[in-house]
Structures are given as C-alpha cells and as structure tokens.
C-alpha cells in the first residue's frame, strides 16, 4: 500500500523553460492517503489558477506552474535565498485511482489535488474457506 504514488523525479531540465530565464523547481509536496482517496498538497508560491496546468495522461500526473512574481525593477539584490521560479513535478498514479474524478484547487500558493480511488478497486475482502 505504501507505493500507490511513486514519484518520478524529473531533473529540473531547462528544456521546458527556454522562453523565460526563470529556474524550474520541484515543489515540496505532502501526500496522504485514507480509504477513499489520496490527497496531494504542493507548495507553488506565486502561481495562481491561470498559470497552473494539471494534466493526467496514461496514469502520469504532471503539475506545471508559472510564477507571477517579478523581481522589483531598479533594485539590486542584497541578500537572496530564492529566485522566483516555475514549478514542475511528475507523478505516476496507481491504477486504483479514478483519473476522471480528480479535483484540484489552488489557494495562497498551495495546490490541493484530491485523487479518489475507483469504486471497484477499493479493498476487497476475500473470504477464506476452511476445508
């Protein structure tokens, strides 16, 4: 049960960000599961719903976001810990999840994805007969 969502880490490659010079980061995520669904929560500061793409294709879930944060013009950076970044992370979904019923919402730079389990895939109890 522990490998329902196996992370497929893609190196933050420059291939998808040729049109802008912002770095591409892997967002931090929390993934938790209960009997009905899997909840995936990702930190994507600076990204709103218009600049966020969540795609599922052949059990591969891709989260892509473009930050709206701009560095202030005519200012010099005196202490820097981050660059306003675009985000991308890819997950492989297990077959028991219902891809059609994924719900997504974004608020305050946090993406929440609810991935419900498909009805027939829920744990089936198998009767063991004694002979």
């Amino acid at each position: 049960m522990t490998n329902q969502l196996s992370k497929k880490e893609k190196p933050a490659s420059p291939g998808t960000e040729q049109t802008n010079r912002r770095p591409l980061m892997t967002p931090d995520v929390d993934i938790l599961e209960n009997g009905d669904d899997i909840l995936l929560v990702a930190d994507i500061p600076g990204v709103d719903e218009k600049h966020l793409d969540v795609e599922v294709e052949n059990r591969v879930l891709t989260i892509r976001g473009r930050t709206a944060e701009q560095e202030p013009a005519n200012h010099r950076l005196v202490a820097g810990e981050y660059s306003p970044a675009d985000f991308e992370r890819v997950f492989t979904l297990s077959e028991e999840l219902d891809q059609e019923k994924i719900e997504a919402s974004v608020k305050n730079g946090v993406l929440r994805l609810r991935l419900p389990k498909a009805g027939q895939a829920r744990a089936r109890k198998i009767e063991v007969q004694s002979e």
Binding site: D43, E71, N74, R76, L77, A79, Y82, N108, G109, V110
Partner: peptide
C-alpha cells in the same frame, strides 16, 4: 525563503509563504 532588494528610495523584502 527571503530576498532583500535595495533601491534608492526603499528596500523591498519578499518571502515565499505558501499557505500562510
């Protein structure tokens, strides 16, 4: 994570605080 920028008239501090 924070950034500090200096301009002529003002300083700008930015911080990544998703979910706060």
């Amino acid at each position: 994570a924070m950034n500090v920028y200096a301009g002529d008239e003002e300083a700008v501090v930015t911080a990544e605080l998703p979910g706060v």
